[in-house]
């Protein structure tokens, strides 16, 4: 099936099998490997991307369902060589270790801050509950989101 999508601002068109998952489409067809696959049951969140402004788990969406959509992946967050404040927060606060969950975690944080620019610590911990991290114990991730929140609201 033919689909048209805008990925990180670039309009593209592809022919895909209906069964192809969006995450495989992004990684293997579009060639953006920053989005990761960490599970098969929509629980780990490593595959999170923005789809028409909503954070979604791209392992649980068919590529054909994204026909006509605008998608932002981790690769599309930095603008003009400047890190996004959330990316900066993760770096400043040591919000990652192995880095595998990080792209999805940053996308989840991005959604959270769009909807709630000044979240409490509890808001942040709830806001990233769809993303598993096995390395950090989450505290530095919380710090990273707080850092970004502060930077984005002042």
């Amino acid at each position: 099936m033919k689909i048209e999508v805008t990925v990180n601002g670039e309009h593209q068109s592809y022919d895909v099998e209906p069964r192809m998952l969006l995450v495989h489409f992004l990684r293997d067809v579009v060639g953006l490997t920053g989005t990761h696959v960490g599970c098969e049951t929509s629980l780990c969140g490593a595959c999170s991307v923005m789809l028409n402004g909503d954070a979604v788990k791209s392992c649980t969406i068919l590529a054909v369902q994204a026909d006509g959509a605008e998608i932002t992946t981790i690769e599309g967050l930095a603008q003009n060589g400047e890190l996004h404040p959330i990316q900066e927060g993760f770096w400043e606060c040591h919000g990652l270790q192995c880095g595998f969950c990080t792209p999805g975690m940053i996308i989840a944080a991005h959604q959270l801050l769009e909807r709630n620019p000044k979240p409490s610590e509890a808001d942040i911990r709830r806001g990233i509950e769809g993303n598993l991290c096995r390395c950090t114990g989450y505290q530095h991730i919380v710090d990273a989101v707080q850092y970004a929140s502060k930077k984005m609201t002042t």
């Binding site: 490997t33 920053g34 981790i74 690769e75 930095a78 770096w91 880095g99 792209p103 940053i106």
Partner: peptide, 12 residues
């Protein structure tokens, strides 16, 4: 290590 990882540029 982080700049590549936070931008989706690390290669697993």
């Amino acid at each position: 290590e982080d700049p590549r990882m936070i931008q989706g540029l690390a290669h697993y």
